[in-house]
Simulated assay, not measured.
Amino acid sequence: MMNTAVLVSGGGTNLQALIDYEMAHKADGCPYTIKVVMSDHKDAYAVERAKNAGIPAEIVSPYAVMGADVAKAASREEKREAVSNAVLSLCNDYNIDAIVLAGWLTVNSGKLIKAFENRMINLHPALLPKFGGVGMWGHHVHEAVLAAKETESGCTVHLVDGGCDTGKILVQKKVPVLPDDTPETLYARIAPQEHIAIVEGTIMLSGLLGKNQ
């Protein structure tokens, strides 16, 4: 069984997909168990989803882990490292085997990347390697896809490495881009595929780690 931490920033629909699968398949071999949910936003609805499922939720925003005064004066890089170090510390506390980034907006850095090398996956709302990298998240991705007049889009689950959206691809799901699409309608078509992909990617990671027994 793969002890898993899920990192979130927003509404948590992909977290909910992971929770629902685990609950539905506990008796017949779900290979992962969500031990903790961490959020870099204290008001993220994903935190409520975790609590409703009886899963511990930890807030790891810069303000929470650095203190308000220090966070206000800190650089972006300092905030990222502080959050990443807090995540690593909590992963040690919860005996975590793997990390799933499910709508996590902080760019991880420092010791966390090395400590969870080949044990951390991310869900990205496009078909990598296209439309990845700094600034490519949420509606920004869908806007870029439409501006480029792509005929298909989708989502990708990949291993996290030291780059931004550059790790080995594990799962991709594709959807058509329609002529009258807006970022909102395109997202609505991709979202159900994200829910499938995040579960498939997490199960695949458990196999890579030998945690599926």
Results as ranks from 00 to 15, higher is better:
M1F: 12
N3Y: 12
N3W: 08
T4N: 01
A5F: 09
A5N: 11
L7V: 09
S9M: 09
G12F: 01
N14A: 09
A17K: 01
A17T: 01
D20Q: 11
M23T: 11
A24H: 05
A24C: 07
C30H: 03
Y32S: 05
Y32P: 03
K35P: 00
S39A: 15
S39K: 02
S39F: 04
K42N: 12
A44S: 09
A46G: 14
R49C: 10
N52P: 00
A53C: 13
G54S: 15
E58V: 15
I59L: 08
V60G: 00
S61K: 03
Y63S: 07
Y63C: 00
V70K: 11
A71M: 06
K79P: 02
R80K: 15
E81P: 00
A82V: 10
V83C: 04
N85V: 02
A86P: 03
A86Q: 02
L88R: 04
I96N: 00
D97W: 11
I99W: 04
I99Y: 06
V100F: 06
L101N: 02
L105C: 07
V107A: 11
N108M: 12
K111N: 12
L112Q: 04
I113G: 05
I113L: 15
A115M: 11
E117G: 08
N118D: 13
H124E: 12
V134E: 10
M136E: 05
W137P: 00
G138E: 09
V141G: 03
A147K: 15
A147D: 13
A148C: 13
E150V: 08
T151A: 14
T151K: 15
S153C: 15
H158Q: 14
I169W: 06
I169R: 06
L170P: 00
Q172S: 09
K173Y: 12
P179N: 10
D180R: 04
E184H: 14
L186V: 12
L186A: 05
I190D: 01
P192C: 10
Q193E: 14
Q193M: 15
I196H: 06
I198Q: 04
V199N: 01
T202E: 07
I203V: 13
I203M: 10
L205D: 00
S206D: 06
G207A: 12
L208K: 05
L208G: 01
G210E: 10
